[in-house]
Design a binder for these strands. Structure first.
Lengths: 230, 230
DNA sequence: TCAAAAGTGTTCACCGTACACCCATGG
DNA sequence: CCATGGGTGTACGGTGAACACTTTTGA
């Protein structure tokens, strides 16, 4: 126990939990693990870890995610800190929730650390431990809002994608049907996509043009006062 | 030291810091205190406190605010958790920032606990300790966003207010001039204000009608799918 | 009578939304 | 040759933004 300026104050356990979103052709999914320690061992849970003295929250969250998925450079954002006194029955623990967006295909390559992890579609996810359900709900709400004002959807797609995939993604995030022409017109007017000469032939006989997010162009437009609005 | 399931994990100090906004006729202000303990004793700071084992964050924040201002039932929202390892030079401490909106006039009545607290306009606030400046910036950004989508502005005004006051408030929050007629038309079309038969005579010879936020009406409209958009 | 703030409508440009048909190709 | 998904443009209504004059009354 350190002798500190604040020595009469309480110290508390701090966990970091990650809501990991992926997109699988039609559906938004989250990655869950079977918890392998007490309490609630064997139940489905978000992945998490404890914060160490010598790391900040972003680092801890990155570590948790890297450990499970093997992925680096993942889009990640702090969400909210959950602090109900009895949220963890084992001991007083606060949890800072983060959400992350990953390309499910990238992850499937690294099946390595998949241990007891599994993708669930949002609709039929199992009951989660503690307050993890509320975390997921909040993450989803944040994702919806962000998706309308920042071009973060691309984080969930492969580098090259068709307009149809992009539309399906937004439909999944916003949980509503969108009009094909309006969607494409809108995105074209934003002028942040590169249309490639390649086609994806996997989903139709005619083939669909592939696109890429033009991050440089986006950034320079932002510098000029542009702001993404879907 | 408790013997716990998590006994090999680290425990950490957790602070709560409050960004308290008020509105004074023309300007947005924040309430700051001269810190009366080390480190950084005598410097200007947000008000804060440490989280106890047996309370959650909302309770801790409410307590901090109640202690300084004597006010209860204040609009308050968790903002973000700051965790840079060396943010507090005295000891490793995370801080969960909250922001609060109060009616400055209400507070001025309770000059009681004003000890070393003082209102500063946002423009000429002094240098703050630690990462408190970043907290204020983030709070302001959040307030701006919220003010456009939730009727929280009223928290900063007396119960009865004139349209002009309301407009000045939004101008202060958004930091831009608004058109008088458009502003009033917009608010009227939302249909959530009660026009009183009273006039405020303090700012003109003609007098200006007073209004009140109709919270019940707002809530029932929300239940019917209405959403506030400025 | 005049200065100072209150109150009040209309017009126009742009954006969001609805909507239907032809194209290319593999089987 | 046909079934399947891909690709494309227009018309309308509604909302946001610009804009100026009259009213009231205390000094």
């Amino acid at each position: 126990m350190t002798l500190s300026t604040y020595s009469k104050e309480d110290k508390i356990f701090l966990a970091v939990d990650c809501i990991i979103f992926g997109f699988d052709k039609e559906e938004l999914k989250i990655l869950l693990v079977k918890r392998n320690f007490e309490p609630e061992k064997g139940k489905w849970s978000l992945i998490g870890g404890f914060l160490k003295q010598d790391e900040n929250l972003d680092e801890a969250a990155t570590k948790v995610l890297q450990h499970l998925t093997g992925l680096n450079n993942v889009y990640m954002e702090q969400l909210y800190t959950f602090s109900k006194v009895d949220r963890d029955p084992a001991d007083r623990t606060l949890s800072v929730a983060y959400y992350a967006l990953i390309d499910i295909a990238q992850h499937d390559k690294n099946t390595l650390n998949e241990e007891s992890a599994k993708w669930f579609s949002l609709k039929d996810a199992p009951t989660l431990i503690f307050d993890h359900k509320r975390m997921v709900e909040r993450a989803l709400a944040r994702l919806r809002r962000r998706a309308l004002t920042k071009p973060i959807g691309f984080e969930l797609l492969p580098e090259k994608f068709t307009m149809r995939q992009l539309q399906k993604l937004y439909e999944a995030i916003l949980d509503k049907k969108l009009d094909k022409r309006n969607f494409i017109n809108k995105f074209n007017s934003l002028d942040i996509l590169i249309k490639l000469d390649e086609k994806d032939m996997s989903s139709s006989k005619k083939g669909a043009y592939l696109f890429q997010f033009d991050e440089e162009k986006y950034n320079s437009k932002v510098d000029d006062g542009f702001s993404f609005k879907l």
